[in-house]
C-alpha cells in the first residue's frame, strides 16, 4: 500500500462519509453548511488515513476568527470517523491562510496561532453569539412551519417536546430545521424531558400568546439578516471564483413568494430559507 499513498481507498463510501462529516460543519455566521455554501473545494484520503481538505471563502478579508472556527470544526468533525488518522484542512487565498493552516496543523488555539498580533481573549464568546442566532433562526423556521400547518399561537406556546417530536411538518424549511432546532434546544438545556415546553426564549422563559408576536419579530430580524448575508457571501464567492454566476432575476417574478431570495426554481440563490435543491459537491479545480 505504501506506493499508493495518494490514492483514495475504501471507495466512495469513505469519501462520502468525509463529505457527510463536512456537511455538518456550519459557517457560524450563516448557520449554513460549508459544503452547501461551496466553501469546500476538494477532499482526499490516503492509505495512512490522512485527510486533506481544501477550503476557500468568499473574500480574502472574511473574518480570520470565523475561518479559524470553521477549520477547527472541520478537524473535529472528521477526526470522529474511525478510518481518519490525521486531518489537514487547508484554507486558500485568505489574508490569514498561513496562520490558520499552521494553527490547524499544530493543533494551536486561536491566541497561539495569532500570537504575533495583538489578540485578546478566546473565541468562545463568538461561538456563543452564533449559537444564539442559530437557535433563533431555527426556532423561527419551526414556528412558521407550524403556523402554516394551521397551528394557533395558543397551541404553539403550550406545545411540549413530545408534541414537537410527533408532529410531521409539510413545510420544507421547517422540516429541515426541526431536528436542528431540537438539537440546540437540548444542548442549551432549555428542554430535557418530553413534558418540557418546546418553544422558549434563549433564557428559557416560556412564551405566551401575548409575548409571541414581539418574539417572532425579533426572530424575523435575525433570519432576514442571515439570509441577506448568505446571499452576499454566495454572490461574492461566485464573483471571486467564477462558478455558477448569479442568474438575473426579474424584479417581480410571479412565483416570488416561493423564495425569500426573490428567485424561483433554478434562479433561487440556494441560500434562502426556502431552498429547493442541495448543492452537489463536485471536484473543484486547483486554486
Amino acid at each position: 500500500m505504501g506506493a499508493m499513498d495518494n490514492t483514495p481507498i475504501g471507495g466512495d463510501t469513505r469519501v462520502a462519509a468525509l463529505w457527510d462529516g463536512l456537511s455538518r460543519v456550519m459557517d457560524p455566521e450563516l448557520d449554513e453548511s460549508i459544503v452547501d455554501l461551496g466553501f469546500v473545494t476538494d477532499v482526499s484520503l490516503d492509505a495512512a488515513g490522512r485527510v486533506d481538505v481544501g477550503f476557500r471563502l468568499p473574500t480574502y478579508w472574511c473574518s480570520p476568527n470565523f475561518a479559524f472556527l470553521m477549520v477547527d470544526d472541520i478537524a473535529r468533525e472528521l477526526a470522529r470517523l474511525p478510518f481518519v488518522r490525521e486531518v489537514h484542512p487547508k484554507l486558500h487565498d485568505h489574508m490569514a491562510s498561513d496562520e490558520v493552516n499552521r494553527g490547524a496543523h499544530l493543533g494551536l488555539s486561536f491566541a497561539e496561532t495569532f500570537s504575533a498580533f495583538e489578540v485578546s481573549g478566546t473565541l468562545e464568546d463568538l461561538r456563543e453569539t452564533f449559537h444564539r442566532k442559530a437557535f433563533q433562526r431555527r426556532q423561527e423556521a419551526v414556528i412558521l412551519g407550524l403556523r402554516r400547518a394551521g397551528w394557533s399561537n395558543a397551541a404553539i406556546v403550550s406545545a411540549d417536546l413530545a408534541t414537537l417530536d410527533r408532529v410531521v411538518l409539510e413545510d420544507e424549511e421547517a422540516a429541515r430545521q426541526k431536528p436542528r432546532y431540537r438539537e440546540l434546544l437540548l444542548a442549551r438545556a432549555l428542554a430535557s424531558t418530553p413534558s418540557d415546553r418546546a418553544f422558549v426564549t434563549l433564557e428559557g422563559a416560556p412564551l405566551t400568546e401575548v409575548t409571541l408576536p414581539a418574539h417572532m419579530r425579533a426572530l424575523r430580524a435575525v433570519r432576514i439578516n442571515m439570509e441577506a448575508n448568505g446571499a452576499l457571501c454566495r454572490g461574492l464567492l461566485d464573483a471571486r471564483y467564477g462558478e455558477a454566476p448569479a442568474p438575473e432575476v426579474p424584479a417581480h417574478e410571479p412565483d416570488h413568494a416561493a423564495h425569500a431570495c426573490g428567485g424561483g426554481g433554478k434562479a433561487c440563490c440556494g441560500g434562502c430559507a426556502r431552498q429547493v435543491s442541495a448543492f452537489q459537491p463536485t471536484a473543484a479545480p486547483d486554486l
Partner: peptide, 11 residues
Amino acid sequence: FIHSRPRYFAE
C-alpha cells in the same frame, strides 16, 4: 440587492 434579490431588499 434591489436588482438581483428584490425580495431580500424588500425584507
